[in-house]
Design a protein around this nucleic acid. Structure first.
Length: 376
RNA sequence: GCUGGAAUCGUCUAGUGGCAAUGACAAGAGACUGUAAAUCUCUCGCCUUCGGGCUUCGUAGGUUCGAGUCCUACUUCCAGCA
């Protein structure tokens, strides 16, 4: 069983730590999205230096390349990526949702690679096997996402997710025993709660997931920040308190991090911060700025005054602006360091203020400034 | 000096009698939430009440209902010959 120790509670919010074979994660925490085994534009050394405690890779992407067998040979994701700290793997469920030409049956999903036309199939069982091969500490159940206004469709996706979850749990048991017999590290499974924007479906999904033999929970299929607090309140009131909860894919907007933590989320992952960075959109306490804008050409202040990331400590907005305009790789590196550090440290601060009882004040101050129109 | 060729939006470029005129780059702005994302979208002659109006393809004339496109002269540039 995955160890999760809670040191402080405030409503649904909690401060704690998840203890994995690769070390512990102080929660709430922002987990870096390392889809293909790397956080785009960043080295693992840079990730640690900017404060990242954990990363999350994607089973679908690693399955296609370099393949699960290679990950196994390499000694698992942590060894292969040289990130000897806690790791997560996402199941590939998101790819069912995001890739074109996906056929979903009760058995699983068939993808077609647009790159080389290869057919590719994933089932709850194959996702579990792949994740055990990849060797991340924490796995996600293979789920079926839907983004629909239609409740009937959402229910179908949710119910399929539940049936798939039972298969995941069953397969996971086998794989866990096999690994134990080989004397390997334990690996852990999170169920994924679906239900979209329908609170009754979310409730039903949370109740279903809560009953399963899993180590924690992912909250999936969240596409709109509107109503997320209410949804999380519903779900996290049902999920067992003693198991960690991961909010899948949300965290591009600081608002999401505050609301998530407030309503019981322990870990976040999101591709937003690094993608924003590569596209020149950088976080400041007054909202994001587009560093490519002409107004930054002669701005010799750091991206964020007082920020202690390697980008802000050493470089100016004018320099970043120049690097972006010149299409230099370093632009994306520095910007990614800054954005990733921004969200990681914001969640760190959320954790600290939850611990000290100053969370509400911090939240008001941060969000009031970040989302005020006065801007930069 | 002679003979050929060429001049189009910041740059390069399409255009061979019929709609301010192609594409790329540059420039300006926007989007991005479990990464098919080093991506994508929009603007890019001037004005506009978004209906449209006005002025444009080196310069000046001409032919034509109509000219970036054909003709004449000039200017500049390129190539070859001297």
């Amino acid at each position: 069983m995955l160890k999760f120790e809670i040191s402080k509670k405030e409503g649904l919010a909690r401060v704690g730590k998840i203890i994995t074979p690769h070390g512990e994660i102080k929660t709430p925490a922002f987990v870096g999205a390392a889809t293909k085994g790397t956080v785009k534009a960043l080295t693992m050394k840079e990730m640690r230096e900017l404060g990242s405690q954990a990363i999350l890779a994607n089973t679908y992407h690693l399955l296609l390349a370099p393949g699960v067998e290679l990950l196994r040979q390499a000694g698992g994701l942590s060894n292969f990526s040289n990130f000897p700290f806690p790791t997560f793997s996402d199941s590939g469920g998101f790819q069912i949702f995001s890739l074109p030409d996906v056929k979903i049956t009760e058995e699983g999903a068939k993808f077609r690679s647009v790159l080389n036309g290869d057919k590719f199939e994933m089932t709850p069982e194959s996702s579990m096997r792949a994740q055990w091969g990849i060797g991340a500490d924490i796995h996600m159940a293979f789920d079926h996402l839907a983004k629909s206004e239609d409740k009937g469709e959402m229910r179908k996706a949710m119910e399929r997710t539940h049936r798939w979850l039972e298969r995941c749990v069953l397969e996971n048991k086998k794989l866990r025993e096999e690994a134990a017999n080989r004397g390997e590290n334990e690996q852990f499974l999170y169920a994924v709660v679906q239900g979209g924007t329908f609170l009754d479906l979310r409730r039903e999904s949370a109740e279903f997931c809560a009953k399963q033999e899993v180590d924690g929970f992912g909250i999936g299929g969240v596409f709109v920040a509107d109503g997320m607090g209410e949804m999380l309140e519903t779900v996290d009131s049902i999920l067992p308190e003693g198991k960690p909860r991961h909010l899948l894919g949300m965290g591009q907007e600081p608002r999401d991090l505050f609301i998530g933590a407030e309503f019981g989320i322990d870990t976040f992952d999101c591709v937003g911060p690094t993608r924003m960075a590569r596209n020149g959109s950088l976080y400041t306490l007054d909202g994001r700025i587009n560093i490519k804008n002409a107004k930054f050409k002669e701005d010799f202040s750091p991206v964020l005054e007082g920020c202690d990331c390697e980008c802000c400590k050493n470089h100016t907005r004018a320099y970043l602006h120049h690097l972006f305009k010149a299409d230099e790789i370093t632009a994306k590196v520095l910007a990614s360091i800054h954005n990733e550090h921004f969200v990681v440290s914001t969640v760190d601060k959320i954790r600290e203020t939850l611990q000290s009882g100053e969370f509400q004040g911090y939240k008001q101050e941060f969000l009031g400034r970040y989302y005020s129109d006065s801007g930069v």
